[in-house]
């Protein structure tokens, strides 16, 4: 009984130090499987200023099937989606099944919950209207109050850490320099007087990710401060935005 909670705490402490998404997925699955879950899909539900179009981000499970479900427009009838936006607490499919209106919606739950399957949905609300959801599913999982609280905390950290790893993975080396595409872009925008939060908006990544790229560039160029890093990159002729002349 005590061990899975100890594992959950280990995950909460260590998840953000992992550098590979596959490691994060494996560690998280290792925790939630002890509560009876075997699928751990994280979905981006909404971003500020963009049309609501749910999109699968990462996780263990039948991703193709999940994406098909999202593409089919089931959010119109599936009360789970509404609950993600309206709730800050983890909830189960059984909690919201009663809100299903119409034959089609009720059928979704009958299908999903066949053979004792249950889902625990962890809504993750960002600072400025961004919403992601971690959906855990399994057969006959344990979802008492304490388990829900711990799974919610682990789910939040899973979503936060996974999103950052996804953003950092969207990068590539550049032949002409030792910096990556993203590191170069951050330095180029800094040299034009943009701040880190502005650059995060321009590159459509979180401030944490923009900052991580900057820190990596600093390490490669051997400086601790930002201004010398930009100057050094300029001196080496590396301040060329790889996307600008593409």
């Amino acid at each position: 009984m005590g061990d899975r909670y100890a594992d959950a705490l280990d995950f909460m402490r260590g998840a953000r130090t992992l550098t590979r998404l596959s490691d994060l997925e494996a560690r998280f699955l290792g925790v939630v499987s002890q509560f009876g879950f075997d699928r751990t899909i994280c979905t981006l539900m909404a971003e500020p200023g963009k049309p609501i179009r749910p999109r699968l981000l990462f996780g263990v499970g039948d991703r193709a099937n999940r994406q098909r479900y999202l593409d089919a427009g089931n959010q119109r009838i599936d009360p789970t989606f509404r609950a993600v936006f309206g709730s800050t607490r983890a909830f189960t499919w059984s909690d919201v099944a009663g809100q299903a209106v119409g034959e089609e919606a009720r059928e979704l739950f009958v299908t999903a919950q066949r053979d004792g399957h249950e889902g625990l949905v962890v809504p993750v609300h960002g600072a400025y209207g961004e919403v992601t959801a971690v959906v855990l599913t399994g057969v006959g999982p344990q979802v008492d109050e304490q388990a829900r609280a711990v799974l919610q905390a682990c789910g939040v950290i899973y979503a936060v850490a996974g999103r950052q790893l996804l953003e950092l993975a969207d990068d590539a080396p550049i032949a002409a320099s030792r910096l990556t595409r993203r590191e170069t872009q951050v330095l180029v925008w800094l040299s034009r007087g943009k701040t880190v939060p502005e650059i995060a908006l321009i590159l459509d990544v979180s401030v944490g990710t923009a900052k991580t790229h900057l820190e990596r560039a600093k390490a490669k160029l051997g400086h601790q401060a930002t201004v010398p890093t930009v100057l050094e990159a300029a001196r080496r002729g590396w301040l060329v935005d790889p996307d600008e002349f593409a």
Partner: peptide
Amino acid sequence: LEILAPLMTD
């Protein structure tokens, strides 16, 4: 717990 995510990211 509801503010843990923005606390960590923003």
